[in-house]
């Protein structure tokens, strides 16, 4: 820099300090936004996968998250294990529950009107909430944090170790699902079924099985999310609605059925959420998030990253 052996005058120095502080805040909010976005991404990927392949909007997606969070709570409480260890129990259980729901609820309605399907999943959502209210009441259950609420202070940015793990898990999940869908025989069968169900049958694909597996994978994403967020957020029968409302925004913004779109939209929503929450206040942030959502719906109804999806149903 310019010569600079003489220190700058005092008032100028404090200005610099103010700028640095503002930069710190921006950076902190950005990091927080990314981590929040990562959580929305994990939840949304499952939702968009189910929609893209089975063409079902699963309004009970959040309730699978809620049930999974209760599973994490009870598993940690009774076995005294680290919350992350419960993944080995939670994932298979949620996967199985998803397959069951697809087989007994969705499949019989597959060929009926789409509206019926919406009623079915909304009904399932209400039933699951009320079942849990009946069993556990409206109370809040706190899963032990097991050190995941430790603050990591990385210079300008501060976050919890649990949040960092969510970000890592989100990247691994999206990458993993992408590899699964493009590189494995079952993954390709899932994509084929989503693109043309009748042709998939003609290839020898058991479409009904593929749908069950897809639904299972879709809700397993919230199984993973539950394990990651249970140590950070309290569990209650209504917790699913809180997280999943924004995931619907993410899925529509990313382009229904698009996994990469969901990831990017989740990050955008996460960052907007964090900044709006900090600078405008918690009351106004939903206004900003849903305002953006409405603008996207008006100007790009196919989603920010939704391409030519209408081509996929050549009849």
């Amino acid at each position: 820099m310019a010569g600079g052996s003489k220190p700058p005058p005092l008032n100028q120095r404090s200005n610099w300090h103010g700028v640095l502080l503002a930069m710190d805040l921006i950076f902190t909010n950005l990091v927080n936004g990314l981590m929040l976005g990562a959580l929305y991404a994990i939840v949304s990927v499952g939702l968009t996968l189910v929609f893209g392949i089975i063409k079902v909007i699963n309004f009970a997606h959040g309730e699978f998250l809620m049930v999974a969070m209760f599973l994490v709570f009870f598993a940690t409480a009774y076995f005294g294990v680290h919350p992350y260890v419960t993944l080995v129990v939670v994932l298979p259980l949620i996967f199985g529950l998803g397959m069951l729901v697809q087989r007994v609820l969705i499949e019989p309605l597959q060929d009926s009107d789409e509206h019926i399907m919406i009623f079915a999943t909304v009904g399932l959502s209400i039933a699951m909430i009320n079942l849990m209210l009946m069993l556990f009441g409206p109370d809040i259950y706190s899963t032990p944090s097991s050190g995941l609420r430790t603050v990591v202070d990385m210079g300008p940015a501060m976050f919890l170790t649990g949040q960092l793990n969510i970000l890592i898990a989100a990247i691994a999940l999206v990458g993993g699902i992408h590899l699964f869908l493009t590189r494995t025989q079952l993954g390709r069968a899932i994509r084929a079924t989503g693109q043309n169900r009748a042709a998939a049958q003609l290839m020898g694909i058991n479409v009904s099985w593929v749908y069950m597996v897809t639904f299972g994978i879709g809700v397993s994403c919230v199984g993973l999310a539950a394990v990651l967020i249970a140590p950070l957020y309290p569990t209650s029968p209504e917790v699913g609605q809180y997280f999943v409302l924004l995931s619907f925004v993410v899925v529509v913004m990313g382009g229904l059925g698009s996994i990469s779109g969901a990831l990017l939209a989740a990050m955008i929503i996460g960052i907007v959420d964090a900044f709006a929450g900090f600078y405008l206040g918690a009351n106004v942030k939903d206004l900003v998030v849903f305002g953006i959502f409405l603008l996207v719906l008006i100007f790009r109804p196919q989603g920010l990253f939704g391409g030519a999806r209408n081509m996929s149903h050549v009849s």
């Binding site: 025989q185 390709r188 069968a189 994509r191 084929a192 693109q195 043309n196 009748a198 042709a199 998939a200 003609l202 290839m203 020898g204 694909i205 081509m311 996929s312 050549v314």
Partner: peptide, 18 residues
């Protein structure tokens, strides 16, 4: 009735799925 968002090779791979 091809799989429109798959490559030609992937379509052929689906052909020998059984």
């Amino acid at each position: 009735q091809l799989f429109p968002e798959m490559t030609v090779l992937e379509n052929l791979q689906m052909g020998s799925f059984t």
